[in-house]
Design a protein around this nucleic acid. Structure first.
Lengths: 272, 272
DNA sequence: CCTCATGTTTGCACATAGTGGAATATGGCA
DNA sequence: TGCCATATTCCACTATGTGCAAACATGAGG
């Protein structure tokens, strides 16, 4: 759409990545060529060539019957075997296991990614849970859910404001949303040091989260507990918070020598 | 190395993917530019440009202190949505949870990927388990382990033979291997409809698996139980097999109306 | 069964984006 | 401080990716 004139190449890599993003957004069902091309903002011809390359590389699969393209298992496996940024997952894994065992609830490890939070790891508890974060790798808007909220609340003010400004429109899709109430919630989290309950968008579900901060006080990640409202009553909450805080602090001191620089401060919008 | 003459571009996408593969192979620690360039077979200059692009896309992160490049969170988030044909994972998740809860063992969901099987999902049981498959995303040679064996055994004969021929050399790395015995095992699995015990390569560990077949009898995936030899005694085995069979058939009928496209032309509603 | 429409694949000429190699900046180490 | 290794930038060349348009499957509807 915004491509001007010319008949020359304007970067094959960004286009390919855009296609990958489109396919990822389409879910397990996959997408037709035309649709993917449109979503990625590429001409069908280019989309065809690029997707063929990606198929050759094993990153994309094509369903033989309906020609739908989808992200390939190879891709999945590659990432899973790759470890993860700074070995955060390996470092935190013991903590998650311990928390899951001692509390008997499902534990999440979340990190920030642009205007979203991503679930890096998850330890199932015995009680089935519904959560925004969903599976490992799942993304959620920064500010939705306790873990996500814990990260947002501890961001430096400038960054926090930018995220809020960007996310407010997106949050409207989650139902009636009140900015004042939202900001109040953020304040509360920053002051208390933990995020609990949240907006109650998932009926019957509840959670607590604390952030893992680096030396400068910037949030590296968040540990989050997902459980039911009955299990997270007013009596038990303080205990859980205390346990989480202790583990989060232990982790913080463990991974302190980390300073990851993202090249571009403002990232792409994600969806279109 | 194998690049011929000229000074012209020979495809930026393959090079970028090669770099991603190199970074993935390096684990969470990351790699230096030179090292990555060498591993990927690219000149340092190109590696630098490509990596910068990838950083801009969010697929790669650069450690501010070491300048080490490593895969970024975006990459993991994307990959987590990959390899999920027909939302297999979401569809099977409840079953896995149910099985894990009722049997008290660890449950795996495996799918085929070329000559290997990949672990798509995994539900931990209370008993710690060692398995070839390992974590989610883990790969294992088709034929090693029960789930993997269940898939292999139910492949159409031509395909099966091809896989066996390709994998036999690879299997030698797993210790003394007897082709006759191996083929006999495959036959047994196909006849009985389940794979149990297997080769006993992991001392103390045992497992059972059944395949999920589509309408034409081709294996879509396999559900596998990992446990200890004590827990999977001759007395309990039939029960477990029966439970697995029932769940597998239920899943099969659930996934079978694979021609979802028949109903409505545009239905990419997606689950947000 | 034939026809039409939508979607997919291939050719083509052009010019730009990507390439390798050399030159330059950066940074660790003795 | 000076040296070496590594990271980054510069530059001219060209072949690779590009858009457009025409051929080619595919499947729906009459």
């Amino acid at each position: 759409m915004d491509d001007v004139s010319g008949g020359g190449p304007s970067g094959s890599l960004p286009r390919a990545v855009a296609l990958l993003r489109a396919l990822a957004a389409s879910g397990g069902g996959g997408m037709r060529l035309t649709n993917a091309a449109e979503t990625a903002g590429v001409t069908p011809a280019s989309a065809h060539r690029l997707l063929r390359m990606l198929v050759d590389e094993g990153l994309v699969e094509q369903d033989a019957r309906n020609k739908h393209y989808r992200l390939g298992i190879e891709f999945f496996s590659l990432a899973a075997r790759a470890g993860n940024p700074g070995n955060l997952r390996e470092v935190c894994r013991p903590t998650l296991l311990r928390l899951s065992a001692s509390l008997g609830d499902t534990v999440f490890l979340l990190v920030r990614s642009g205007y979203d939070a991503v679930c890096l790891d998850r330890c199932e508890g015995p009680v089935p849970i519904r959560s925004f974060t969903g599976d490992i790798g799942g993304k959620v808007i920064l500010g939705v859910g306790q873990g996500s909220m814990a990260i947002l609340a501890h961001l430096p003010e400038a960054e926090r404001e930018e995220v809020i400004r960007f996310n407010l429109p997106r949050l409207l899709n989650f139902g009636p949303f009140d900015e004042v109430f939202f900001r109040k919630g953020i304040e509360q989290v920053r002051e208390s040091g933990y995020a609990a309950r949240g907006t109650g968008l998932l009926p019957g579900m509840a959670g607590v989260a604390v952030a893992i901060l680096d030396r400068e006080g910037r949030p590296l990640a968040a540990i989050s507990i997902g459980t039911t409202v009955e299990r997270l009553n007013a009596e038990r909450l303080p205990t859980v918070v205390q346990v989480l805080r202790r583990e989060a602090e232990a982790l913080a001191t463990k991974i302190n020598p980390f300073d990851v620089a993202l090249r571009r401060p403002a990232q792409h919008a994600g969806s279109f």
